[in-house]
């Protein structure tokens, strides 16, 4: 939902980042306001997953140039947990399995930590149990998942639902959804997309990082960006995703040449 008067949440300017000394992001510019849904599309290796990891603060990635402001605050100075507490959430492409840590314990610990930092009320185990079960209904999750180890032995779809459940609990202001549609069958995709839509509102924003247009059939973006070689090379409305689906990523360059040939 685009609203000209909305507050700017994220301002990325000329962002360069490296991993293992190799530059992956080569000057990303992006502005995201409250209430907006952005999609970042691109081929594998274009830098879109790197971009989401840099935003979340993965320690392997180093920002070498440019600025990264979240709600006016320099994100690069914050540890990953401080970013989470400030309201950034990354739904992982490959959620990590953590044997030996019960899912309910982990979810409550995360919830209470973030609530505490935000000066909000923490919940005891019984209160939290009621609260989380309510949230799980949104994603049609079996309550058995609470007793299992975090993501351990979960199917691809179950892991992605667990990610969105965490998002529902932590109520981020900016959610980064990295390839959330990958590995989902059509039913799971619908459930996950429905969950995301219900969590979307005028006070938060979302960035969907995706290879395919499929997720965008269910979650309609306000902006679609195409990333290539570490830069955003094209920004448009939702129709861009449709065109990419039909014509492929090469079409952008063919299109550029045609456009360039015009007098």
């Amino acid at each position: 939902m685009i609203n000209i008067n909305s507050k700017i949440l994220l301002e990325v300017h000329d962002l360069h980042a490296t991993v293992g000394g190799i530059e992956i992001l080569k000057g990303v510019n992006l502005t995201v306001k409250s209430g907006e849904i952005h999609a970042i599309m691109g081929l594998n290796g274009s830098g879109k997953s790197t971009f989401s990891k840099v935003l979340a603060g993965h320690p392997d990635y180093e920002i070498t140039r440019g600025t990264l402001l979240f709600d006016g605050q320099d994100l690069s100075a914050l540890a990953p947990e401080e970013r989470a507490q400030a309201g950034i959430f990354l739904a992982f492409q490959y959620p990590v399995e953590i044997p030996g840590v019960a899912n309910d314990h982990f979810l409550r610990l995360a919830y209470n930590t973030v609530q505490g930092k935000r000066g909000k009320e923490e919940l005891d185990p019984l209160e939290f149990d009621d609260f989380v079960r309510e949230k799980m209904k949104l994603l049609k999750m079996n309550p058995d998942f609470l007793d299992r180890s975090v993501n351990e032995g979960f199917s691809g779809g179950e892991k992605k639902r667990n990610e969105i459940l965490q998002m529902a609990l932590l109520e981020p202001r900016l959610a980064l959804l990295d390839e959330t549609d990958s590995g989902l069958d059509i039913d799971a995709l619908r459930i996950v997309a429905n969950g995301i839509n219900q969590l979307s509102g005028k006070d938060n924003a979302m960035i969907l990082v995706t290879h395919y247009q499929r997720l965008l059939d269910y979650i309609v973006p306000d902006f679609v960006h195409v990333m290539e070689a570490g830069r955003i090379i094209r920004t448009s409305g939702k129709e861009l995703a449709q065109a990419l689906e039909t014509h492929g990523y090469d079409w952008i360059h063919a299109n550029d040449q045609v456009a360039g040939a015009q007098p």
Binding site: A56, A79, P80, E81, A84, Q85, V96, T113, V114
Partner: peptide, 16 residues
Amino acid sequence: RESLFYLQSRGLTETV
């Protein structure tokens, strides 16, 4: 490292 980052990205401090 990935497990640590995962937990931190959910708000837990590095120590926790």
